[in-house]
Amino acid sequence: MIKVTNLQEMNYIENIALQMHIQKKAEAMMQEYQVENLDDIGCFIVLESEEFTDFPISEMEFVEMLSLKENVFLHGVRIIDDSYGEDIYLPVEVVTC
């Protein structure tokens, strides 16, 4: 699991497409809320596929399938309180027949 709480920690995300997606989203959120870091508004959590039990679907505000290049992620947002949320990404395999 990688927990991203600032822009420098984005470098730990190995999947470049996901890294770019999260960076754009973080920068937009920081601009919208007029903050200089994510500490005050939330974080991004990138799970490994075997950490699927750490993706609490019942606690999510919403869940979607996010397709980035050749990778697919289950993406959900969990609201912790009125001003703080967690964006969680879980890589999933797509089976085609």
Rank of each mutant, 00 (worst) to 15 (best):
C43N: 11
Y89H: 09
E36I: 13
D40P: 07
M29N: 09
L74F: 10
I57E: 14
G85S: 14
E51D: 11
R78C: 10
P91N: 02
T5I: 06
L47M: 06
N11C: 03
E14W: 12
V35G: 06
V4E: 05
N11M: 03
L7A: 07
Y84H: 07
M65N: 14
Y84N: 07
R78K: 15
K25H: 08
H21R: 02
P56R: 05
A26V: 01
M60W: 06
M29Q: 09
G76V: 08
N11P: 01
V63W: 04
A17R: 05
F52C: 09
T96V: 13
K69W: 05
T53R: 13
M30Q: 00
L7M: 10
I57A: 10
I88Q: 00
M30W: 00
N37E: 05
L7T: 00
K69S: 15
M20A: 05
V94P: 04
V46P: 00
I13W: 05
Y33S: 01
Y89G: 03
M65R: 13
F55A: 05
F73E: 06
V72H: 11
T53V: 09
Q19S: 08
E51P: 01
Q8N: 15
N6E: 02
G42N: 00
E48H: 12
M1W: 04
S67M: 08
L74M: 14
I16H: 13
F62K: 04
M29L: 14
K69N: 12
Y12T: 13
Q23F: 07
G76A: 10
T96H: 10
M1S: 08
I16C: 08
E59H: 08
I79M: 15
F52W: 13
T53E: 14
V94D: 04
A28M: 13
V72Q: 10
L47G: 01
N6T: 03
I2W: 06
D54V: 06
Q31W: 02
D54S: 11
H21A: 00
